[in-house]
Design a protein around this nucleic acid. Structure first.
Ligand SMILES: [Mn+2]
Ligand SMILES: [Mn+2]
Ligand SMILES: [Zn+2]
Ligand SMILES: [Zn+2]
Lengths: 126, 126
DNA sequence: TAATTAATGCGACTGTGTTGCAATAATACG
DNA sequence: CGTATTATTGCAACACAGTCGCATTAATTA
């Protein structure tokens, strides 16, 4: 079940995402919130927001889950077929425009393709 | 640093991978080893084998790291540009033949593409 | 304003993986 | 072979991300 009440914590989390250009891990998110926001609450808010399709999540390096606002998907269907990029130097993660073409396989029915591109971002390149 | 000595644990781990059709997480691997093989030892062996390019690793669902024998890459270069498939029902993970084409991006230099396809395997489909 | 119940804070817990250190055992070398 | 060297192991303690039960707080509803 998703979010039903407008609370301070909810607003803080949403603001953090709105002010962020990149995707945020729970850790990064907490660094951008007042220190007194409870850790469990943050995780629960992320879960609820994901349930509601307000944010989507995906895995990046070091087994870390990242979250970002959903911008393009219609609230009804909710498709996340875009790729993500993570910089090997600064670890920053961003959503890409690039839609991923889900390939067809012989032995399997493929429903989803998770693509993480890794390399170097513009800032770290020079 | 990689493996330099031929030990019982090393043989057990290698056998487990050789007998497995799928990729194995540390957890799955340990289930296939005698119960007395130490957990730390397993993780250390996986690290060493990966250093040596005997196995490669990648992340699947639930933030779980999977390992599989390297079959195709020449020991010198060592490229892992193939995709992986994970079944949403039985969670089994396999390496695919499918080479991944690393796309070009404007703002980033892409060095690597990690592709995890998710869906349903043949067994779970019927 | 009072009742309902979603959201929160807290502490304990789980699971995956890591690390320091002393003991063990594989290998090299005479 | 016997010994020295040191990679590997076992253990226990730790780190870290995330989860959960439960009592309390507070947003919403009526
Ligand atoms: Mn995204
Ligand atoms: Mn593979
Ligand atoms: Zn960077
Ligand atoms: Zn399956």
């Amino acid at each position: 079940m998703g979010v039903t009440r407008k609370t301070r914590n909810l607003e803080l989390v949403l603001d953090a995402f709105r002010n962020a250009q990149e995707a945020l891990s729970a850790q990064l998110l907490m660094e951008r919130l007042p220190a007194d926001v409870n850790r469990s609450t943050v995780y629960r808010l992320l879960d609820r927001l994901e349930d509601d399709g307000v944010v989507h999540s995906f895995l990046a390096s070091e087994n870390i889950k990242f979250y970002a606002l959903c911008k393009e998907c219609p609230p009804s269907v909710h498709v996340h077929s875009h790729a993500h990029f993570q910089c090997n130097s600064c670890s920053q993660v961003v959503c890409l425009e690039q839609e991923v073409v889900v390939p067809t396989l012989n032995q399997y029915r493929v429903d989803e393709a998770q693509v993480l591109l890794k390399g170097q971002c513009a800032t770290c390149m020079r």
